[in-house]
């Protein structure tokens, strides 16, 4: 029970920081989403020790390990567009998949290559 209470407090704090991020986004008319601004804010708060790790640790660990759960309603939304999968639209899906593959492989390969080159130099 104590653990659940702690978790709710932690997630509550994360929610307040999220709303603060939204407020910054609206006030400064930024294109970066409020949640990402909130992430940067929390990182700064943790780095400056204004927020202690123990204030968010359990909640953040739980959320981060179960991040996929929070995406389910969004990804289920794809059924609203099932007609896109028919006809010429299917070609668009193929294009997105091919391009995604190239981004994933290209960026991953390049950063890994740079990393290994650096590791090799140190030895």
């Amino acid at each position: 029970m104590e653990k659940v209470g702690k978790m709710i407090m932690h997630i509550g704090l994360l929610y307040i920081i999220f709303q603060f991020g939204n407020w910054i986004q609206r006030t400064l008319h930024l294109f970066i989403p409020g949640s990402v601004i909130g992430m940067i804010v929390l990182f700064l708060l943790l780095s400056t020790k204004l927020v202690r790790v123990s204030w968010i640790e359990e909640g953040a660990n739980y959320i981060v390990a179960n991040l996929a759960f929070f995406f389910i309603p969004v990804t289920v939304g794809i059924i609203e567009y099932y007609d896109l999968f028919l006809g010429k639209g299917s070609l668009l899906i193929l294009i997105v998949l091919v391009s995604t593959m190239l981004v994933m492989g290209g960026s991953g390969f390049f950063s890994q290559w740079l990393m290994r080159r650096k590791e090799w130099k140190h030895e």
């Binding site: 994360l14 999220f18 409020g34 990402v36 909130g38 804010v41 780095s47 981060v64 389910i72 309603p73």
Partner: peptide
Amino acid sequence: KWINELLGPAVVALAYPLY
């Protein structure tokens, strides 16, 4: 939509592993 509402704080939580 309530689960969606938690997507925001979930992204904020990503700061913890970064830290």
